[in-house]
């Protein structure tokens, strides 16, 4: 379990902290951060291999809206609704992903196709406003106080319950990241992102490998959407779909670091804390200031720190360790030579 001890200890600490009682506001912030961190981790699975999707808002929107619509109109418990929503997101990923990879649509062409996808979902939600509430947003029907237990409706009044769920979800996200990191898929995709033709010549089924990771990433993002709507009890097309949210996902991951396990989590922490801090200390006069800072930071990151904050720190630490080891090795060989 090397490399995962830290998150488990951290999660256990968080869980204990939650049970002994944290005020509800910091608890809320932590829940939101963990849910977004899960979604961002899902995006980074693709992003690290150069598959930059601006379409993850589409999967998130499908996850959130399918779950909520099935609950409101069919009375279907999210325990069934979420798997259906995830299946829909996976289907969408295949329908768009397969031709994309088959016809070798890469780089900014891929980003723009996925951008069109996220806009399709956003506009569809707005257009079907008779059922989805359009731009005004949509609220899942609250469970009755008497009949439906909270675990069936997946609606809990206590923030502590949500917190434990969020910690669990986040841990699962990290486990998936780790499983991918150690799999053959990762090697194949690394090769593909280096040079697609050579990878294909070496016997890698490029389309299939890319499709697998895309579907996994889409499912994770859709699940993030499901969690989001169940926790927030509100969803609107602009908070889960559209170009804005897609860029937000990309930005947070790039800021944190695409190539490291905790990069997306770190990105979620800094972006959400920044927004909250500005909201608290500057107030509503500065609506938009957080995004202005994001924007400048995103540009600066890409120009100066393309590996993200955490990635760059790890790199620097790694270089230091490497230097020490090299000098030790040099000293050792010198000693032997003498």
């Amino acid at each position: 379990m090397k490399g995962l001890a830290l998150p488990f200890v951290f999660a256990a600490l968080l869980a204990v902290a939650a049970l002994i009682g944290i005020p509800s506001y910091p608890l809320h912030i932590m829940i939101v951060i963990l849910i977004w961190a899960f979604t961002y981790t899902g995006w980074s699975l693709m992003g690290r291999f150069g598959l930059v999707s601006l379409g993850h808002g589409a999967f998130m929107g499908v996850g959130a809206y399918a779950t909520a619509l099935l609950w409101n109109y069919a009375g279907m418990t999210p325990w069934l609704g979420i798997p259906i929503a995830l299946a829909l997101a996976a289907l969408l990923a295949v329908v768009v992903g397969y031709p994309c990879f088959k016809f070798r649509i890469t780089g900014h062409y891929f980003a723009l196709v996925t951008l069109a996808l996220t806009e399709v979902v956003r506009q569809t939600v707005i257009a079907t406003r008779d059922h989805t509430g359009g731009s005004l947003g949509f609220t899942p029907t609250p469970k009755g106080n008497d009949d439906t237990p909270g675990y069936i409706a997946l609606q809990f009044d206590e923030k502590e319950t949500w917190f434990l769920i969020a910690v669990l979800v986040w841990l699962v996200g990290l486990l998936i990241w780790r499983a991918v990191d150690r799999s053959m898929v990762r090697n194949a995709l690394d090769a593909i992102s280096e040079d697609e033709d050579s990878a294909a010549a070496a016997g890698i089924n490029v389309t299939w490998e890319k499709l697998k990771i895309t579907v996994l990433s889409a499912i994770m993002t859709a699940f993030g959407g499901c969690m989001y709507v169940q926790y927030q009890m509100f969803v609107s097309p602009d908070t889960v779909s559209g170009i804005g949210i897609s860029l937000q996902i990309v930005f947070a991951v790039v800021a944190g670091g695409v190539f490291t396990k905790f990069g997306p989590t770190f990105g979620a922490i800094i972006t959400l804390l920044l927004a909250e801090m500005l909201r608290i200390y500057i107030g509503t006069d500065a609506v938009g200031l957080d995004n202005a800072i994001y924007g400048v930071a995103l540009v600066l990151f890409i120009v100066f720190l393309p590996k993200g904050i955490l990635g760059s720190i790890e790199d620097a630490v790694g270089r230091q360790i490497g230097k020490v080891e090299r000098s030790r090795a040099a000293a050792g060989s010198g000693a032997r030579g003498a």
């Binding site: 930059v52 860029l247 990309v250 930005f251 790039v254 938009g288 200031l289 957080d290 995004n291 202005a292 994001y294 924007g295 400048v296 930071a297 995103l298 540009v299 990151f301 890409i302 120009v303």
Partner: peptide
Amino acid sequence: LATGGLLFFFQS
């Protein structure tokens, strides 16, 4: 992505 950052910046 860098111009995506500018998008946020200009909007804000």
